[in-house]
Amino acid sequence: MAVKTLTINGEQYSAQEGESVLSVCRQNKIPIPTLCHLEGLSTVGACRLCLVQIEGIPKLLPACTTKVEEGMVITTSNQKLDKYRRMIVALLASEGNHVCAVCVANNHCELQDLAYEVGLVRVRYPYLFPKKSLDATHKEYVMDHNRCVLCTRCVRVCDEVEGAHVWDVAGRGIDCEIVTGLDYSWGSSQTCTECGKCVMVCPTGALFEKGVTVSEMEKKKDFLKYIITARQKREWVAFTNE
């Protein structure tokens, strides 16, 4: 594997060929907000929060899907990028029905963390207050579409790691929704293995365990690293929740 050198925010870094810009930034503690990305799942470049500016490329590119190249000059944060990130989080906040004060994931929510990270103090867009449903038909878990940000982590973890492909996206545009099977209730799903991986990777309180109340739903995502490492390297390494 060839080593590539690149410049990020004026500093020189080295990276391995085939590595993503995001991975280099993470290794070197350069902060880039992400939402749809989760280590261990495929990258989709959908949330657009990790967009960076690369010299010589007119468009902003997502750090998660962009592979490093020799001599790349990357800016991960400037006034424009920061503003766009703030706007994206604001759009997310305006899209769903996110009420932290009564949410099971309060204080354990990536959307909340993102709002702090990008410095969102006010949402200037009208809240859409969509009429969304809640699926509590499963015996252990609940899907609350009001809190869903459509990051598709649940879809990917179920398909790629668990191999069940219970979840998928239906509809289009603002009417997109995560569905179970061919839009059945979760409880009637014949494919769900009740493993709970989707619940653990969900960044918000959209997926949670039954019986938890406000602020009690902690998401433990390190199981993913454990499984991936075990599968790829045949090593059983325990990770602590970061």
Binding site: G45, A46, L91, L92, S94, R172, G173, C176
Partner: peptide, 12 residues
């Protein structure tokens, strides 16, 4: 109406 809904800027 025709947005696929994958990315946030276009969807919302």
């Amino acid at each position: 109406d025709e947005s696929c809904g994958k990315c946030i800027p276009c969807r919302v």
